[in-house]
Amino acid sequence: MPDISLTTLAVLCLTAAAAGWIDAVVGGGGLLQLPALLVGLPHMAPAHVLGTNKAVAIWGTSAAAVAYARKAPVDVRTAARIGLAALGGSLAGAFFAAGIDSAVLRPLIMAVLLAVLAFVLLRPTFGTTVADPAPPTGRRVLAAILVAGLVIGFYDGLIGPGTGTFLVLALAGILHMNLVTASGTAKIVNVCTNVGALVTFTAQGAVLWQVAAPMAVFNLAGGALGARMALKRGSGFVRGVLVVVVLALVCKLAYDQWGG
Rank of each mutant, 00 (worst) to 15 (best):
A17E: 05
D156R: 03
A17H: 04
M215K: 12
P124R: 10
G205W: 11
G93C: 08
G20A: 08
C251N: 11
P135K: 14
A18T: 07
G164D: 02
P107A: 11
A72I: 03
A224M: 09
A92K: 02
G20W: 03
G29N: 04
V217F: 15
L121H: 10
D23K: 05
V66R: 08
C192V: 12
P133Q: 05
A24K: 02
Y68F: 13
G127D: 01
T200H: 15
G89P: 06
G20R: 05
G40E: 01
K54V: 03
P136L: 08
L220H: 11
A24H: 04
L208F: 14
A134D: 13
R239E: 13
L9Q: 09
L169R: 00
W59D: 00
N53F: 08
G236D: 15
V39F: 08
G60Q: 00
A72G: 03
A69S: 09
G20S: 08
K71G: 12
L169D: 00
A97Y: 03
L225N: 05
T78V: 06
R140W: 07
A248K: 08
H43D: 10
L50H: 02
A94C: 06
V147I: 15
L249S: 07
V26T: 06
L34G: 04
P136E: 09
G29S: 06
R228K: 15
L253M: 10
M44V: 02
A227L: 09
A203V: 10
L41F: 07
W59Q: 02
T185V: 15
G222L: 12
R139M: 12
K71H: 15
M1P: 14
T128P: 07
L249G: 02
I188M: 12
